[in-house]
């Protein structure tokens, strides 16, 4: 008898992040940008470092390189324990910001720092699409 599958938790968009999640639904990565041109991730009220307010959203290319990665072999929440091992990756986007995500379509032993990657979009519910990365 197999244990019942535990559903993965999903993001709950907030007024600050709604635009980002609207973007992923359309398979786009939208990043907040300040008047001085600072583009950042994750979406928040003030930009890190400068504390400037974002004034617009810009579409990222979805391309980047692996900044760092690890293989989670333990899982924290029970829902993720069923998925181990999985790759946690920090991708440095072409536009500059770094985005934490998962690596897909790639053998664990093939993930390397500096490897080029591109975004893929995983429609996990009617409301939520997650951004993952694969080798490009």
């Amino acid at each position: 008898m197999t244990a019942p599958e535990i559903p993965l938790p999903l993001p709950v968009p907030t007024p600050t992040t709604q635009k980002f999640w609207d973007g992923t639904k359309q398979h786009k990565i939208l990043l907040p940008k300040t008047a001085d041109g600072q583009v950042f991730f994750y979406p928040r009220v003030l930009a890190p470092g400068t504390l400037d307010e974002p004034v617009e959203w810009v579409e990222a290319s979805g391309k980047g390189t692996v900044y760092s990665f690890t293989v989670d072999r333990r899982g924290t929440a029970s829902a993720f324990r069923a998925k181990v091992p999985y790759v946690i990756v920090i991708v440095e986007l072409e536009e500059g910001p770094r985005m934490t995500s998962n690596m897909v379509d790639c053998a664990i032993e093939d993930v390397k720092i500096g490897m080029p990657v591109e975004a893929v979009f995983e429609d996990v519910s009617e409301e939520i699409t997650l951004v993952k990365f694969r080798p490009s």
Binding site: P11, Y67, S68, G75, A79, I88, N102, L130
Partner: peptide, 26 residues
């Protein structure tokens, strides 16, 4: 907290150190 990282299975304390360690090695 339902943060971006939590819901994607990324908010794992040893993994945070591991990501820094791997980059440090490089």
């Amino acid at each position: 907290q339902k943060s971006y990282q939590t819901v994607m299975g990324l908010a794992v304390m040893p993994a945070s150190y591991a990501l820094q360690a791997r980059r440090y090695m490089a």
